[in-house]
Simulated scan of single mutants.
Amino acid sequence: MAKKEFAEDRRITIGEVASAAGIHRMTLSKMINQRGYNTSTENLSRLCAYFNCQVEELVEYVPEKVPEGQGPSE
């Protein structure tokens, strides 16, 4: 979002992104604020189209921390 704001030299609201991408504002808010929120590939595709980017620019895999001694055995 920051890249698009910089490129267009203006503020972009969550409501504007939601409306332009065809995603409910509440869904977009959950995607942004809830760690581990499970969204659909359709929503990711719509955001990629809106931001003209690849999916890896929108999401990042962050593995869960497993308490020591509780991970898979080697």
Rank of each mutant, 00 (worst) to 15 (best):
E5K: 13
A20H: 12
L28V: 02
L28Q: 02
I32H: 06
N43Y: 00
A20Q: 15
K30Y: 10
P67W: 03
I32R: 13
S45H: 09
M31G: 04
V66H: 01
L47K: 01
R46G: 02
K65H: 14
A18S: 12
L44W: 01
G36E: 07
R10E: 08
E8P: 00
N43S: 12
R25T: 05
S40L: 02
I12D: 04
E8M: 11
M1T: 12
P63V: 08
G69Q: 09
R35M: 06
E64I: 02
Q34P: 00
P72C: 09
T41M: 13
S45V: 00
Y37C: 08
K65N: 14
Q54L: 08
A49I: 10
E74D: 15
E74H: 15
E60G: 06
D9T: 10
K3S: 13
V66D: 00
E64M: 04
C53K: 06
E74C: 12
S19Y: 04
E56V: 02
Y61H: 09
T39A: 11
M1N: 10
E56I: 00
S29M: 07
R11L: 12
S40K: 03
R25F: 01
S19V: 00
C48R: 01
T41W: 06
E42D: 15
V17F: 05
Q54Y: 05
I14A: 09
A21E: 04
A18N: 04
K65R: 15
E16R: 05
E57G: 14
T39I: 04
Q34R: 15
V66T: 14
N52F: 01
N33E: 03
L44P: 00
I14W: 04
E68K: 15
V17S: 06
K30D: 04
I32G: 00
Y37K: 09
R11S: 10
N38T: 05
E64H: 04
G15F: 11
E8A: 08
E64Y: 03
H24K: 14
G15D: 13
F51H: 08
R10N: 07
V17K: 04
R10C: 09
L58K: 02
V66M: 10
C48H: 02
D9N: 15
E56Y: 11
Y37W: 13
G71P: 05
T27R: 06
N52K: 15
P63F: 07
K30S: 07
L28T: 01
M31C: 09
A20N: 15
K3V: 11
Q54V: 06
E5H: 05
T39P: 01
K65L: 14
K4F: 02
G69S: 07
R46V: 01
P67L: 11
E57H: 12
P63Y: 08
G71I: 08
R35T: 11
R10D: 08
P67T: 03
C48Q: 03
S73W: 05
M1A: 14
E8Q: 14
G69E: 07
T27L: 03
K30C: 03
G22H: 08
G69M: 09
Q34H: 11
T39S: 14
R35L: 10
R46P: 01
Y61K: 08
R35N: 09
E56H: 11
I12C: 06
I23H: 01
T13R: 13
M1D: 10
E56R: 05
M26R: 10
V17E: 05
I12T: 11
A7E: 15
G15E: 12
A21C: 06
